[in-house]
Design a protein around this nucleic acid. Sequence first.
DNA 1: GCCAACGTTGGC
DNA 2: GCCAACGTTGGC
Length: 153
Amino acid sequence: MNYWLFKSEPDEYSIDTLANEKNGFGRWDGIRNYQARNLIRDKIAEDDMVFFYHSSCKVPGVAGIAKVVKPAYPDPAQFNPDSKYYDPKSSQDNVRWFCVDLAFVEKFKSVVSLQTLKSIPSLDHMVLLKQGRLSVQPVTKEEWQTIVAAAKQ
DNA sequence: GCCAACGTTGGC
DNA sequence: GCCAACGTTGGC
């Protein structure tokens, strides 16, 4: 079982949005970056655990936990001309983009802010702090446990 | 709103 | 295959 961090702008889709999904899961679509695509297509499996990160907002940071309930499948938005995620270069027999389904697990009492993450020395090498822009990224077990512990304080 | 740090595109 | 121009992300 592996750990990941997924970023979302809470104005678009927040941990509360996921928690309130009627069917109990939400589709994580709209990934249009090859590095992120390769991770979800090739590495992310059912039951993997995900930190839900809020970006581009007042207090950026980890807002809670989700879980992968369906591994990678073709993102329908790439075929939909009305979607902002439409990709004319994609086709059914040449699928470019993939999505996964996530289920809500837990919302932290308060966001573990980016500022807090930066202040924890053992997180120095986190991808989040090294490569700020990647929207889907791996988290080590140690990093996972450190951040969960910080959330419980 | 600014801007650094990327990623992508397309001419050559 | 190089690289300039452009686009995007995301913290501040």
